[in-house]
Amino acid sequence: MSQGAFKGEIARKQALAADIAAKGPAYTAWLTPDVLDANPGQIAADQGLHPAIGCLLPVMGLYAQEPGSQAFYEEAIAAIPVGADEAEIIRCWFLWAWDHPVYGFKTPLIDTPLLAPAEAIIALIGQSRTAPIEPRLWRQARAALSAKVDETGADADIADPILSMAWGLDRTPAIAADVLNAWSGPVYMAAYRSGDWSEEDGQTYGAQHGEFSRQAMAQLGEIRQGDPEQYAQYKAIMKTLWESAPELADLYRRQQEHDVMVKQVVGAWRTEVQRGFIDCARAAKPALAVPA
């Protein structure tokens, strides 16, 4: 019998929850940008969690860079039952994402030739809840969907989350984060293209932003990657540069408004995907068998 989440030990869960609440060493190593130089799957495994959860949670919580990140991490860990089948949490979340009424992967595929090969992948995920899937079957399913994308000239981005799901979780746990990353791209782009902000606006703003950015970095001197204080200085310089060019004031104002709108749209989506994960975690059954 598998021990499941937290290796079946309540003390492990309590210790991790306390560490996250206190922003302790496990939190810092796993859920902040520090993890970008580490192996999140291994860190999570050390805490008694499946590597797939280890790869997914930092991305889902934006590496603790948003005001709600820590609360999400605390709620997510609290939601995972001790001894739960953790791979099942991820599979549940994949299937939830496929069918979601607003953001679902299925929606853009309806009435397209991509639907059938995508559904074949979803069927495999369903089967993997009760029995291991041979790697060659995942590969065949991916090959069929990618061939259909090429054949039809469809937007590869709408197939990306589904192609990213079509791997064995125990062999390739990082797919959990890939699915989320593949999902976020189209959500961001849809938000970006909406509202009163044209492609030309984006190009004009981008070119000017690049020029100001070069000036700001020249003022800062040596760049220290990941230094929040220097980044705050950079942002302050950028704001001053934009405000010193009255002819660009309208473009800058509209970009700021557009940026706020995009963040709201993407933020609403992120809140929803976090809720989906937490719901799947709460519903997880105990691990009864060692997954292959």
């Binding site: 590969r139 090959a143 994308v149 590869a156 589904i162 192609l163 797919i175 890939d178 990353n181």
Partner: peptide
């Protein structure tokens, strides 16, 4: 740029003889 395993697989599949 950065890419998912799904996107990489889509590229790789174009250059191999198909799944075994």
């Amino acid at each position: 740029g950065g890419m998912t395993r799904g996107k990489l697989a889509a590229v790789f599949e174009r250059f191999v003889g198909g799944a075994q």
